[in-house]
Write a protein that binds this DNA or RNA. Structure first.
Lengths: 382, 382
DNA sequence: ATAACCCATGAATCTTCTG
DNA sequence: ACAGAAGATTCATGGGTTA
């Protein structure tokens, strides 16, 4: 992972040098061909919702006798696993070429195809970061009572390689999840109601994805201004959410009908106010605060005593932001992290949560020095 | 899928002819070699928890500096995807040979290995029935804040082929899930507390699976007396739950320590009372009753009027068990299913639930004719 | 107006037995 | 193998109509 600042700078440079990138456009034709027209190392994120290769038997009816509207479109038909694998390898290879070294890939699928996709992308060198389970709150039931209700789909999130500095907006996710770490299982409803695109009462696309899903993906792993490529654009959920969140987008889509619907849809989409997007990212992109700054600015005065939670050790804050262990007469000195590490004999230590101080403002309560950092951030906002 | 009765008969026959099966034993040595000693088509279910091929970099430590006891045992190291794939193909091939044609396979894994396992088992001819997400209610957090909390593992449930008559105890699962279809995402806690095997305070096996997981797997897809094979037996969760549920088991395990712990553990396990193990049976496995039998035996007299729920149609029961639509003068006649189908113009109709009658015994209440069938079944029970 | 009721529908590898 | 009949089978949600 990398700091936002570094990546932002790099992204900006890339956009400038790649002024010819067809952002805001849906490339027609086969997606592999279309991606060939894009330069190497030019996009920050690929989100792909490829055909699932469902292999359906006959018609299926509900217990009440009505028919299930199945996905029987030609684009989901493959002759064999071999044919599907070849197709998968082709588009993943192009996606890999087009991605920046620190870019990332998302693919969504079901048990019909996701194992093949996952194995192939590993073979190509992608490094899986998480598999994410989209738990559908309202899936279609299993009408015949023959299996477990197929109530989820799987997303794979992968970087270009083991050492890549991928983007992950940890704070934004934790904030979105009520101050708990965002887990690998996401509960979201399927796309229906007003969000579902319809033409004359029938759905435009059989497998339109919910915007909430793309919202979370883009918010978690891209930043403002990033270029997002969707090789299977469909009716443009990726583009609509990208526009809303201030990301640039490129689509590939073979079908005229889907392209038309997508353009119309994205046209109507309004970007969120810049300040809103900033706010969502504020905690994540908050500048690093040196402990010394707190001292410099009087949030913790030199001479203040700090101690671990169990008061096994007490140290004194020095003017330069270093700590000196009490009673050691200058022999045990270090940064908040380093001294904590040494005292515990641990491989690492987060000094912000290890060291505490007595907060006079709240009647002498013991608080981690991170609380002082939060006050500092609040005071220096903007 | 197949009725319980049919499979039960076959399973029994198989056990009799395979009296040499080493049930209740843990075969030492390499699992591929060990499986070679088992005859073809001899087990009903394979549950496998293979090495995950985890590729952890350096040592992992928590924010407080304590070390995470990562999976770095020698049996989990593989040189490359190629080596892991070869290993996977080898044990899956043996599992396939040993399984009966209507048997089934379960494999559990994480994103490190499950995509490779899934693709290979598809290549070998297994037919995926569901992928199941075990959603951990208490996963280990992501200490570094670099990814989403890895809060689930994935199981694949597969039959021997597209046309196999696999076992699925639909009613038992629905009952277990408070009368709603069991979904593909299962929320279960990880294995700890008293259930976790420890030796001198440290865990015996790094990846011991919770018994609740095996309980659900075996209850859903095996029946009493079935033979369950676990090629990666570990400390014997599969064997313990199998014994409890009245299933037979065979294990393979290389490590002496795990075998010893497993034997000790399973020895202590007590089988549940037979009556408790009986699962809720689906109607599919109840004996078939011809509508004519009800008429023959006086449970519905010839001349009785039957009608659909909204009384759009009324028909009269004839002496041979056929129905005649009132007012049609012999032109609209058929079986309970056929006439219901024709009147509705539906592709099919379950006459038992479509047609109703007035039950004099309960003051003229409207009841589906299935109620009469239930009375008949009750009266003719052994 | 509001509640009650009915109806439509969603990436689905969706039956079993007899002749 | 294939055709035909018997028989088993659904949950959450949104929108429209009725009471």
């Amino acid at each position: 992972m990398e700091t936002t600042k570094t990546r932002a700078t790099r992204a900006k440079t890339a956009v400038e040098t790649q002024a010819d990138l067809p952002t805001g456009l849906i490339l027609p034709g086969d997606c592999v061909e279309a991606m060939r027209s894009l330069p190497d190392n030019s996009v920050d994120c690929v989100f792909a919702d490829p055909p699932y290769n469902l292999q359906l038997g006959g018609d299926l009816s509900r217990p009440d006798g009505s028919a299930v509207d199945a996905v029987t479109d030609h684009w989901d038909q493959f002759d064999s696993f071999k044919a599907y694998d070849d197709f998968t390898r082709a588009w993943l290879t192009e996606a890999r070429r087009v991605l920046k070294p620190d870019g990332a890939l998302w693919v969504i699928g079901s048990y019909h195809n996701i194992f093949r996709v996952g194995a192939i992308l590993q073979d190509l060198g992608f490094w899986i970061l998480n598999d994410i389970v989209w738990r559908k709150s309202n899936p279609m039931p299993n009408f015949k009572g023959t299996r477990f209700t197929n109530a989820h789909e799987t997303l794979i999130w992968a970087s270009m390689g083991e050492k890549s500095k991928y983007q992950f907006n940890y704070r934004a996710m934790k904030t979105l999840n009520d101050e708990l770490q965002m887990r690998s299982d996401w509960v979201l409803p399927i796309c229906n109601g007003a969000e579902r695109l319809k033409e004359g009462g029938t759905k435009v696309h059989p497998t339109q994805k919910p915007e909430a899903l793309l919202y979370r993906v883009l918010l978690a792993t891209t930043e403002k201004g990033d270029v997002v490529l969707d090789p299977f654009f469909g009716t443009g959920t990726t583009g609509a959410v990208a526009k809303r969140l201030g990301r640039q987008w490129i689509g590939c889509e073979r079908e005229n009908v889907y392209r038309d619907a997508a353009y119309k849809r994205i046209e109507k989409e309004l970007p969120l106010d810049e300040s809103v997007i900033e706010t969502m990212q504020s905690k994540k992109s908050a500048p690093r605060v040196a402990f010394g700054s707190l001292v410099e600015n009087g949030f913790l005065k030199p001479g203040t005593e700090v101690f671990d939670k169990k008061r096994r050790w007490v140290a004194t804050v020095r003017a330069d932001g270093s700590l000196e262990l009490n009673g050691s007469e200058g022999k045990q000195v270090g940064s908040i992290h380093g001294l904590g590490k040494d005292l515990q004999g641990a491989p690492s230590c987060n000094g912000w949560s290890f060291w505490h101080y007595e907060d006079a403002a709240s009647g002498g309560d013991m608080k981690p020095i991170d609380a002082a950092r939060q006050l500092y951030l609040l005071a220096t906002e903007d």
